[in-house]
Design a protein around this nucleic acid. Structure first.
Lengths: 127, 127
DNA sequence: TTCCCATATCGTTCATTTGCGATCAACGAC
DNA sequence: GTCGTTGATCGCAAATGAACGATATGGGAA
């Protein structure tokens, strides 16, 4: 459970001070079953899906807007953001006073790819 | 948490005594966020992904083969099967002495559809 | 400096999940 | 009938997750 998010210390995501897209680290889980399960688990809560959708609609936004958008306490939302962040599904970046989050579309699409790979590979024999 | 699976009582899935494909009930969750979260949660465990992959590879097989294929106790596998069953991702059917399970490819593909809908709908504005 | 604002994190509580062994119910064989 | 086999369910313990309020941190404003 590393040191985690802190604007000036060793943030998990603030790899570059640019806009939101600082290339995801491409988690080296190696096992596609593990990777898919991890991603699915991160998406396995309605609040987190709502956060993802919200972030996909607005291309980006700061955390406060997400909190306002959900019927949950700020600390709870923050934890959901952490789960999504650790799965690489969203990225955040310190933008002055607040933190700008955005969805990592590539990572989200990766879920679909892993799914397709599983289904198609298997259905190859009988479909 | 209803009465659940029992070959002669009120099984959850044995809707027809036919082969594996007895049309899924299409859960009426209505809210796509809830539905996606439910499906994702059901897939959010490596053992369950492995079960899905296993069932997709062999088009069908009875539960014992799944147990043999995983490093888990029979009761544990049975529970994972229950989770997958309740999410509609697999279906089982009593076949003489054992139960024949098979993956519901349509339902699995539904996950990808829900994902795509979320991403594409949102990316519509800026991609 | 002091104060406020925006977020993360801590600590706690409660619910859920995971895993297991043991048991139960149904079936086929005998 | 009794067995053996198959697979679900129960009961439990441990681990994890969800939600919250309270607190900490760090930057901007006054």
């Amino acid at each position: 459970m590393g040191p985690a998010l802190s604007p000036t210390a060793t943030p998990e995501f603030q790899v570059t001070p640019r806009a939101c897209p600082p290339a995801p680290p491409v988690d080296p889980t190696a096992d596609p079953d593990e990777e898919l399960a991890r991603l699915a688990a991160a998406m396995g809560h309605p609040a987190r899906i709502r956060i993802l959708r919200f972030l996909l609609e607005r291309r980006e936004c700061f955390a406060g807007a997400i909190v306002d958008h959900l019927p949950l306490a700020q600390s709870t939302v923050s934890q959901h953001l952490k789960v999504l962040r650790e799965a690489g599904l969203i990225r955040g970046e310190v933008d002055g006073l607040h933190i700008c989050y955005c969805a990592d579309e590539e990572r989200i699409r990766r879920v679909g790819e892993l799914l397709d790979a599983m289904v198609l590979l298997a259905a190859g024999n009988a479909r």
